[in-house]
Each structure stands twice: as C-alpha cells, then as structure tokens.
C-alpha cells in the first residue's frame, strides 16, 4: 500500500508540473484533477495500515467529500473558461493583465 501512496505522490507532482507548464486552461483543469486524485490515493492507501483486514474508513469519507468538491470546482472552472474564451477567443490567460 505504500506503493499506492507513492504513486499518489507521483500523480500530485505530475499534475503540479502540468499545471505550471501548460497555458491551456482545459489542461490546467485536468492537471488540478490529477493532483487531487494523487492526494486521494495517499489518503486511502495509508488508511490500510490498521493492521487488520478492515481499513480506516474516515479517510474514505473524506475522499468522497473531496471528489464532490472536485467536480463542483471543475464545473465552475470549465464555465469560466468558456466565458473567457467567448470573450477573448482563447482558453488561456493573457499576459497583458499580469504585472
């Protein structure tokens, strides 16, 4: 199960890399989702360390909460991306407003 947790760390890092590296907003949204999955994997994998067959279920409930939060955030982000694209023609953040 440590292996699963390590993959969780890997997913978090890969997601963070893509979030920073790519300009397209859809890819940034995907990256945030992958990062979230990585965190959920760490939460659940380490919940198996009870020493018994039954895992600790509190992290399971936390992850279900997290999945629902993630889909809410994704929906809001996608709508915002589309509105922005309709306004500017691009699903990217322009550089001009940054200083």
């Amino acid at each position: 199960m440590y292996f699963y947790a390590l993959i969780g760390v890997g997913l978090f890092s890969v997601g963070l890399y893509a979030l920073i590296n790519y300009a397209h907003l859809l890819r940034k949204i995907l990256a945030l989702n992958v990062m979230g999955s990585g965190i959920f994997l760490i939460l659940i994998a380490l919940a198996k360390r009870t020493g018994e067959t039954q895992p600790d279920v509190v992290p399971h409930a936390m992850v279900i909460t997290g999945i629902v939060v993630a889909v809410s955030a994704t929906a809001l982000a996608l709508t915002l991306m589309l509105k922005l694209a309709a306004e500017t023609g691009r699903a990217e953040l322009s550089e001009k407003d940054r200083d």
Partner: peptide
C-alpha cells in the same frame, strides 16, 4: 484498497460526470 464506496463515487462522478463535463466543454470551446 478496500474502498468500494470511493470506487463507486469515482466511477460515477470522477470518471463519468467529470468526463461528460469536460467533453461538452471541449465541444463548446
């Protein structure tokens, strides 16, 4: 990882609905 509840939530929300949201968003884009 013995988390069937999470598996159900992931399949329905994480993969299913999020996937549907993403695909429609891409089509609109």
């Amino acid at each position: 990882l013995d988390a069937p509840d999470v598996a159900l939530a992931e399949a329905a929300i994480g993969a299913g609905l999020t996937g549907a949201l993403l695909l429609t968003a891409l089509a609109k884009l």
